[in-house]
């Protein structure tokens, strides 16, 4: 594995559309559930163990070479909110474009052919990690970091939260993210043996509900 390639893929400036999404943070701010650094940390911890874990297991499985179409269907089944499914596909399509330009290769091309309007973002992330010469651990860590990094920067913009406080939240969550990544990678190895049903299905009903409310709202800053 190349540590430098991992930094390129995990960089928030990687041009794959993430800047327009808040990972549910805007809806949570609007609902009064994120009001500062402490509640941002709680929100992010919840994401790590639910959507973060599922995304990381999907990404790690794709990085191991599991069929992306089977993973995409499993991601659909684990994402009840139509708005979140649409956002995941949109981001997957944007990531696929950026990854194909960055690490050209036949697997990414095949994925674009199979999903011209986008596959779920964590699935694309795993295939992109493979193309970058990275492994399942790297893919899982990227997915988990994204699952909390997006909400943290969005909250800085939404609440005027001190950016040092937001970054400190991410640092405090790092050991927990490492443990979730290990669990995701273990699940991915089972998926490679047993199929996509071995993926975790930890859900956060409130994230799904708030995502639907957010999609119906006018005057939002972030797409999701």
């Amino acid at each position: 594995m190349s540590r430098a390639a991992l930094l390129v893929l995990a960089d928030g400036r990687f041009p794959a559309g993430g800047h327009a999404h808040s990972g549910g943070a805007e809806a949570a701010v609007h609902a009064g559930r994120i009001t500062g650094a402490a509640s941002l940390e709680d929100f992010c911890r919840g994401r790590l163990h639910t959507t973060g874990l599922v995304s990381a297991a999907l990404a790690a499985s794709a990085a191991l070479g599991v069929d992306p179409a089977a993973l995409d269907a499993a991601a659909d089944a684990r994402t009840p909110s139509p708005a979140l499914r649409a956002a995941a596909r949109k981001l997957g399509r944007q990531l696929l474009r950026a990854a194909r330009a960055t690490w050209p290769g036949v697997e990414l091309d095949a994925l674009a052919r199979r999903f011209p309007k986008g596959a779920h973002q964590p699935v694309v992330l795993g295939v992109a990690a493979r193309a970058a010469g990275l492994g399942p651990q790297d893919a899982a860590h990227c997915a988990l970091y994204e699952s909390v990094g997006g909400p943290a920067t969005a909250t800085v913009r939404l609440l005027g939260l001190d950016p040092f406080d937001a970054t400190a939240v991410l640092a405090r969550l790092a050991p927990e993210a490492d443990r979730v990544a290990e669990a995701a990678v273990r699940a991915a190895h089972r998926v490679a043996e047993e199929g996509a049903d071995a993926l975790p299905a930890a859900s956060a009903p409130l994230l799904e509900l708030l995502a639907e409310a957010h999609a119906a709202r006018t005057g939002r800053l972030f797409a999701s």
């Binding site: 400036r13 041009p15 794959a16 559309g17 993430g18 800047h19 327009a20 999404h21 808040s22 949109k90 399509r93 944007q94 474009r97 950026a98 969005a154 913009r157 939404l158 939002r220 800053l221 972030f222 797409a223």
Partner: peptide
């Protein structure tokens, strides 16, 4: 296109949504 509080990002630094 929705730009996530950063209109210049969507036209310069990360053009993927606009290209799509």
């Amino acid at each position: 296109v929705e730009t996530g509080a950063c209109p210049h990002t969507a036209i310069r630094d990360d053009i993927s949504a606009n290209l799509e």
